[in-house]
Amino acid sequence: MKNNFITSIRVPWHFYLCLLLILVLSMITLSSGDIDISLSEILLVFTGKGSSFYNQVIFELRLPRLLTAIFSGASLALCGLLLQTYFQNPLAGPFVLGIHSGSAFFVSLWILAGQSLGINFAINYSGMNTIIASWIGSLTVMAILFTISVKIPGKVILLVIGLLLGYFSGALINILVALGDPHEIKTFLTWSMGSFHRTSISELKIMVFILFISTLASLFIARGLNLIFVGEVFSKSLGINPKKIKIIVLIITSLLAAVVTSFCGPVAFVGMISPHFCRLILKTENHFQLIPYTVAMGALIAIFADLLSSFILPFGMPLNSVLGLLGAPFIILFLMKNKIGSYA
């Protein structure tokens, strides 16, 4: 038997293929840049025998960026998968539902409010305080989405509401930008285009920690996820309280989205697309398989997009432009293939 939903984690072979691809793309990412570093030299650096210059380039510039791409991609993908299950909607994702924008608004509000109160924050959009602001933002949006989705069910409506929430917080952000000083605006705009290269090692640790806990927690409730995906009464009849599962999902997804947003800016589409690829490849809805695979797929897509945005395309293209160019057509194709009516 290929798939089953029984209470055990089955890691599909695709997962290992995905890991291999991640490794290959990682090597390419590490070796390319303003200075090309050959593969053998990278190996020397990792075995502790590299030159101090290469050491610096790898450990201080390229590795943090690579790891940020890996872990934020993985976090977003997991977040997207859980959102899709929660809303029973294959098109849900932290960016599409406006969760990123909610975070972004609270982060910018936090910084502006801090300034007007005379507190001089370093404007780097990271650190513990921005995570908290970001989390408040993502939780607020999630809460609004949750309340509305109970009152107006419908898969496309959810996306429309997400879009509107995105516009709404976008409008508020614009007001803040209009009030802010030029230097700050530039930092903010670069941040809002999404990027993996501003994250420090200590921030990475937070991200890895949250991702690790979230993945474990998701695997722990995987059976519940399989059941609430099918239906609420259905899951109750099989002994699972959907409320408990949904609260856990709410906390995990808002945390994941918040951390990534505060460190990397709103990164588009990775969260929505990764679970899709996994479902289409594995042809399953089994979360015991989907969770590990989606996490790996998210990392892979993020590295790939980062690679495209910084090295392959002739000019440094903003990450979100790359993701938008890839993601938007994907959604349209998906809707056309699945006939939009069946998702209304």
């Binding site: 038997m1 798939n3 089953n4 939903f5 029973q88 294959p90 995906f229 099918v230 239906g231 259905f234 479902r279 042809k283 399953t284 809805e285 089994n286």
Partner: peptide, 10 residues
Amino acid sequence: LNTGLMTSEE
């Protein structure tokens, strides 16, 4: 029932 890509067996 929202079963997505689930097979009968699953």
